[in-house]
Structure formats: C-alpha cells, structure tokens
Design a binder for these strands. Structure first.
Length: 570
RNA sequence: GGACACGUGGCCCAGCUGGAUAAGGCGGCGGCCUCCUAAGCCGCAGAUCGCGGGUUCAAAUCCUGCCGUGUCCGCCA
C-alpha cells in the first residue's frame, strides 16, 4: 500500500535517525503485514538490534511512541505495525487514480509460423502477450503490439511447395484420413491448409527420392536471398493461413498494431550489412566451409558457445535476421519486450549477447513454459492436441447451458452473447492466472470452470455492482463519508493497492500478479455486497454507493486490462 | 553428458529482491436465498514447503549436493 508508505517513511526516517540508525536499508523491509488485524504495513526491527545494541522488542516499543500521523502505530514481538486511518483510506481510495506510466513500449508476441491453427499451447504466447499489452496501456504506457511474420525459411517453404505441387486428392491419400478437418472448420484456411503442410512433411520423412527436398531447398534458398517472385509465392501460401489464425485471436480479443515481415531485413540489405559488421568483431570466427560464427564463450556463455549467423553459402540464419529485426525495433521504441516460449531461451541469450557486442541494448523477455495435456506433450502430428477454436466453441456451449439454466428471462440471442463473453474470458483467464514460468497441464474441467478462481467469478461481482448502479440510476457522490464496517474496510484496503499491483505486474512482466489481484478485489467486493447494502428500504446509502461505484470502475478497467469482458448483466 | 527452469495439503496454484501462525481455489464435510443476481457467502477437516547439508537473530524464499519433471544443446525456424 504505497499511499500509506509515503505517509510513513518520513516520520519513520527521522525517528530511526534519532535512535542512531544510519542508512535507509530498512525501506525494503517495510512490507505488507501478514495479519490484517495487526495492520497494513509492518517493519521488522531485528536488523536494528546489532547496530543499536538493543532488543528488537525494545526498539519497536520505542519507535511506537515516537511516531505519529494519520495512522495507527503498534508494536508486537519486535515488529512495528502501521494501520491506515480508515476514513483517510476511504477518501484516498475514492479519488481519481493517476496512472504513472509514461514510457513507450513495443511488445512483440505470438509471431507464430503461419502454417496451421493455434492449439492452446501456442496460444499461451498470444494470451500472455496481449495481456501485457493491455496492462501496459492501462498503466498509461504508449504501447505498440507487433507480430513478426516468419515469411521465409523452411516452414513456409514446405507449405508453398505443397500448395504448388499437391492436389486435394494427393493430400487426402497421403494423410490417409488420419487427420481430417473438423467439419466445423471447413473453409477456415488455417485448418484446411495445414493438411498440405502435413502431407508434405509425410512425403519428406518417407522420401526415397531427393527431388522434393531439392525443390524445397531451392525455394528456401531463393527466399533467403530475397527473391521477389519466391517471396510473393510464399506470401500467397501463408497469408490465408495467417488470416485464419488471426481470426481465432480476434475472437479472444487479441489484435495487433503492426506486422513486420522477416524478409524485410533481407530485401532492404540490413542483414548483409549486419553480417559484415559481425565479421569485424573480435570474437568472430570462420568454420572450415566458410560459415561464420561468434564465439560467445569469450563473453561468458556456457555450453555450446559457437553462435553461427552465416551459412557456408553466404545466406543468413533465422537468428541473424532476428538481430537485424531487433536493431530496427530499437529505432521504433525506447523499450522492447518479447514474449517467447522457453525453447527459445538459448536463442534469445545469443541474440541478446550479440546485440550487446554491437553496442545495442538487450530487450526484456518474458519466457513461458509449455502447456501439456494429461496424455503428454501436445503434438498435432500424433493427434494429441486441443485447438483453440475447439476450446472456444466448447467454452461458449458450456457457458450457454449454464446461462440458460440460470436466466429463463433472456432471449436466445442474449444468452448466446453472454455465453460468448463468458467462454472467451474463462479461457483467457485460466491461462493468465498462472505464473508464466510454470509449465501447466491443460484440463478441460479447469478451463471450463465458471466458479471459484475464474473469470466468471469476477464478472459476476462486476454485474452485481452494475445492477446496483442501474437501480440507483445516477452518479455517486465520491466525496461521501460514512460508517466503515469490516467488510468495507477490507474492500478499501484491497482497492488501495490497485495501482501498486498494476505497477508490479507491468514492471516485472508478470500478468498473473494483476490477474490474481482482481480475484481478491472481486472477493472483497462480494463480502462488501453482503454486509453493506447500498439500497436499504428504498433509500440510497450515499457512502456505500460511492464505494460500490469505485469498486465497479476498478473491476471494469482491471478486467479489460486482462482481457476479461466486463458484462453488465449475466 | 552440459546449460537453464520448475518441484508447496488428495488435485491446481500464490508467496521465493529472507522476516510474525504458509494465502487462495478445486474436491470432501456442515450451514446461508420472505433481503441490491446463490456463477455468491460463512464455517470445518486437510501442509515434515522434493530430500540432505550450509549461511543467518530469522529460510518455502539465499548457497550447495542429490532426486524427480520440463526445455534447450542444428551452418532448422
């Protein structure tokens, strides 16, 4: 609770100085109290004991009597506890929040190869990335959401080759009915076209004749040398697939500001310039066949230290282009954040070290662990996969059945609309609420849970507040005052931490921190709703209404910040 | 084999820039709709914080060894 911290730090500083404590190392020890009954912030006095030659208990007791302000001070067992004055807290919470963000940030996320539909594993990137984009915007930062389109190289090459050389019948025969398109997604190009890609992969893995490999190799090679015609052919192949994928993301509320193609940096010459520059570095080396690398071991990298950036034939590698891309990104924004799967850790390290070697800054990276299924690793090939499109359909259907059971007063259209919002929100929140570095197992029953720690839980609290606002039918008077029962006090304390939690979440790139905070906010609102009625016997309690309205606003903005849709009725 | 993550009640998960009795949720058990939507609320049971050492006034949190799981170790992307 930073508003209280600001109030405390000065008097505390002078009290400690008077006692003979030097430095301000204690600032980071001053933290949230463990027990709510004891206070809002606590200072453990153990670190002062040695310096002052007194017991922590005596120090806390002495400090207790020498500090005063718009808060309550008490001491127990060597801890000094501060509790904000509830009325002061209320008037602060009811004020307009000022968002502290003023940076420009370019967040690159998703950037999935455009060769097939999203499964829930690949979608973790998009959901985490978009949440970070939204949170940064809520925080006040200037954000650009960017998708780096992998429009060259082997994967797109295989896709383009397949589309040029295989008929629909060929594909059916090759795949042998093993991987049929769900009838629901016929006409959606990411689902349809991926079969060409898969068929080509089958052919390549069983290939006796080298012809296919040679043809694909020729395409890839041409693309890497910036061949316009081949790049155009590639684009014709992947664009419809990418469009299908973006349609899925759009349903999740995920949109991008800019798309940047990988080939851009080959075509405009920055990649070859870069390779020249890299060749002049002192850690540069050349292999027997003329391939170039940097020996990052000399800069402390462990394990495999040779980082190849140029093939023997003179063409660039993915990582090389990524470096060129980053140098360009640094011209676009003063802060860069990338969302990457944990499989990219080494690659990101190599790119980062090379950027440093070139005198460039290193981007921030949020890594996330993979989502697996109870049956094991997700794999389209083995059919062990849950597509995002299917998950969203199922979520919507289950939500519709819940809404229908609860609300007989609604029309079919209203039910469908609510169910869509509930389904999408539940799916997003299920992924957002867990720490990115925790690998987790996807389970249908958890993804489709609409109670407990879920999106619908907070959506429901918000609709309760909306329902009250609608009944009152006018704005609240935010300068109201009144009695503060325990449930309201708790809600005020939670609301007071809104900006703190948002800052933490944004500055540390940890979306789950704010997601879990919103759950706390909704929980606190539910208790307030139970104990502090706004409308009593037809009369409006102004103070309760003001608090309810503030909570409603914070819930609405916060939910938007994590991509949970704040319905007004459900 | 090496590097990097992760390991918290039956299940999921927070806390990990060291601080007071380890926070939630699911599941289980028991209560609450004549009262602003019960997708809710209240209560009970359930934890040697993977295991062993170490640092410290204080360790789930830091260091170290081991065990388990995941990821990476391509002139692929």
């Amino acid at each position: 609770m930073n508003i209280l911290r600001e109030l405390i730090e000065e008097p505390l500083m002078s009290a400690l100085t008077d006692m003979g404590v030097s430095g301000d190392f204690w600032r980071k020890a001053l933290g949230p109290s463990r027990e709510k009954a004891q206070g809002d912030l606590s200072l453990p006095c153990f670190p002062f004991a040695k310096q002052l030659g007194k017991s922590p208990v005596d120090i806390a007791t002495a400090l207790e009597s020498s500090i005063s302000g718009n808060f309550e001070v008490s001491s127990t067992g060597g801890y000094l506890n501060f509790k904000a004055n509830p009325e002061w807290l209320a008037s602060n919470v009811l004020k307009e929040n000022e968002m502290p963000g003023q940076k420009s940030v370019l967040i690159e996320h998703t950037s999935a190869n455009p060769n097939g539909p999203f499964h829930v594993g690949r979608a973790r990137n998009a959901i985490l990335g978009d949440t970070l984009v939204r949170l940064n915007r809520l925080f006040g930062n200037q954000v650009r959401a960017e998708y780096y389109v992998d429009d060259m190289g082997k994967q797109v090459g295989v896709l383009a080759w397949a589309l040029a050389n295989l008929s629909s019948e060929n594909v059916d025969n090759i795949l042998n009915d093993a991987e049929e398109v769900n009838p629901k997604w016929i006409g959606k190009k990411d689902h349809e076209t991926v079969r060409w890609y898969q068929a080509a992969q089958h052919l390549r893995s069983n290939a006796e004749d080298k012809k296919i490999e040679e043809e694909i190799g020729r395409l890839v090679h041409a693309s890497e040398h910036g061949d316009d015609e081949v790049l155009a052919q590639f684009e014709d192949a992947y664009q419809p697939v990418l469009d299908g994928m973006l349609e899925t993301l759009s349903r999740l509320g995920i949109e991008f500001d800019t798309f940047t193609k990988e080939s851009k940096f080959v075509v405009d010459g920055t990649v070859s310039n870069l390779m020249e520059k890299l060749a002049s570095l002192e850690i540069h080396g050349v292999a027997d066949n003329g391939a170039h690398f940097l020996d990052l071991g000399q800069r402390g990298l462990k394990g495999k230290t040779d980082f190849f950036y140029r093939r023997g034939d003179g063409s660039s590698l993915y990582a090389t282009r990524d470096i060129a891309y980053h140098m360009w990104k640094w011209q676009q924004s003063e802060n860069l954040v990338n969302i990457l799967g944990e499989d990219h850790k080494l690659q990101a390290k190599q790119v980062g070290m090379t950027l440093q070697e070139l005198g460039q800054k290193v981007p921030e990276v949020m890594f996330y662990a993979f989502i697996k299924l109870p049956e094991g690793k997700m794999s389209t090939r083995r059919g062990n996969v849950v597509f995002m499109d299917d998950l969203l359909e199922e979520a919507q259907a289950q939500a519709a059945s819940v809404v229908r059971g609860l609300r007989s007063d609604l029309s079919d259209e209203e039910v469908e609309a609510i169910a869509e919002a509930v389904g999408v929100s539940a799916v997003r929140f299920n992924i957002t609420k867990v720490s990115p570095d925790k690998g987790f197992t996807f389970r249908w029953e958890e993804a489709l849970s609409f109670e407990g720690e879920s999106a619908p839980f907070m959506m429901y609290s918000h609709t309760r507040a909306c329902s009250i606002a609608k009944r009152v039918g006018r704005d609240a008077k935010m300068d109201s005052k009144g009695e503060i029962p325990p449930a309201m006090h708790e809600l005020l304390r939670v609301m007071a931490c809104y900006v703190d939690k948002l800052s933490h979440s944004v500055n540390e790139n940890k979306p789950h921190v704010f997601a879990l905070y919103l759950l706390e906010l909704a929980t606190a609102y539910n208790s307030f709703y139970r104990d502090c009625h706004v409308i009593k016997d037809g009369e409006v309690d102004e103070f309760n209404f003001a608090v309810s309205e503030k909570a409603r606003a914070l819930l609405r903005e916060g939910m938007n910040g994590i991509g949970v849709i704040p319905l007004e009725s459900m």
